[in-house]
Amino acid sequence: MKILIVDDEVFVHGIFEAICKNIDDVTIVNKFKDSRKALDFLEDNKVDLIFLDIQMPEFTGLDFLNELDKKGLQTSVAIVTSNPEYAIDVINNNNVVYFIKKPLHKYSIKYSIKEAIKGAIHRKSLLEASISMKKSKENKEEKSTHTFFSCNRRMINLSHDDIMVIKSLEGGANILTDKEPIISSYSLKEIETKLPASTFIRIHKSYIVNAKKIELIYDNLVIIGQYHVPIGRTHSAKFKEYLANN
């Protein structure tokens, strides 16, 4: 396990080093007094666990955690602080796995470090399981080529390649295909859950589009054949993210 120490007190670095060198499969890869420099280090280096002091000058541990979230860095963090009230500020942060209270005592710190490592290992296993499930779902979606739609007491099996745009209607949805439109009793929300998210994306409260059919995006409009579909404000960020990753 690779560990990073971020604390403005040098003697704290020494305490962690002394304990960690006697724990199997644990390596302290770097130590920082300046949390900004620690963030720069993490841009190019991956670690499993960060021991993070909260009360640091200028750029605090809370600032550090906020930047981790902004950068999307999934790194386990053990908070090291003399003020337990900070727990309220970080208790819901997904990166935080443990709290260690200062001052550090030689009799309790070894136990605390080991518990923090256990927390990091457990969190890593949960993340890996989540990623595995997501990939499995995506693979299943990619293999799916048709979906059944309820249409006037009938079930019609539509090819995904035939669907261009789906528009919300009162009591159902209008599925616009490259052949003829089909009125389904399914709501737009129901249809969204049935179709593969890798291909179909909701870009407006009233519209889902087949991303493979998009010919042009002009200002806030998506052009698919004869259809000009507006991009809703609440869906704009998600749509931009989709485009960036596909």
Score class of each variant (00 low, 15 high):
residue 2 K to T: 08
residue 8 D to I: 02
residue 16 F to E: 14
residue 18 A to Q: 15
residue 18 A to I: 07
residue 24 D to S: 11
residue 26 V to M: 11
residue 32 F to S: 06
residue 33 K to T: 09
residue 34 D to F: 00
residue 35 S to Y: 00
residue 37 K to E: 04
residue 41 F to L: 02
residue 42 L to V: 04
residue 43 E to R: 07
residue 47 V to T: 07
residue 52 L to K: 04
residue 54 I to R: 00
residue 56 M to W: 01
residue 57 P to D: 09
residue 59 F to H: 07
residue 61 G to T: 04
residue 62 L to D: 06
residue 62 L to E: 03
residue 63 D to S: 05
residue 65 L to P: 08
residue 67 E to N: 05
residue 73 L to Y: 12
residue 75 T to E: 01
residue 78 A to G: 09
residue 85 E to V: 09
residue 93 N to G: 01
residue 94 N to M: 13
residue 97 V to L: 12
residue 98 Y to L: 06
residue 101 K to V: 14
residue 107 Y to N: 15
residue 109 I to F: 12
residue 114 K to C: 04
residue 115 E to Y: 07
residue 118 K to G: 13
residue 119 G to V: 11
residue 122 H to N: 15
residue 122 H to A: 15
residue 127 L to S: 13
residue 129 A to V: 07
residue 131 I to A: 13
residue 139 N to V: 08
residue 143 K to M: 12
residue 146 H to V: 12
residue 147 T to K: 03
residue 147 T to M: 02
residue 148 F to V: 06
residue 152 N to W: 00
residue 156 I to S: 02
residue 157 N to I: 01
residue 158 L to A: 03
residue 164 M to F: 08
residue 166 I to Q: 01
residue 167 K to V: 03
residue 167 K to W: 01
residue 170 E to S: 10
residue 174 N to V: 06
residue 178 D to T: 01
residue 184 S to P: 00
residue 191 I to V: 10
residue 192 E to P: 11
residue 193 T to A: 13
residue 197 A to N: 14
residue 197 A to L: 13
residue 208 I to G: 01
residue 211 A to S: 10
residue 214 I to Y: 05
residue 216 L to T: 10
residue 216 L to D: 14
residue 217 I to P: 05
residue 217 I to N: 06
residue 222 V to W: 04
residue 232 G to P: 07
residue 233 R to W: 12
residue 235 H to Q: 15
residue 236 S to T: 12
residue 241 E to P: 11
residue 242 Y to R: 10
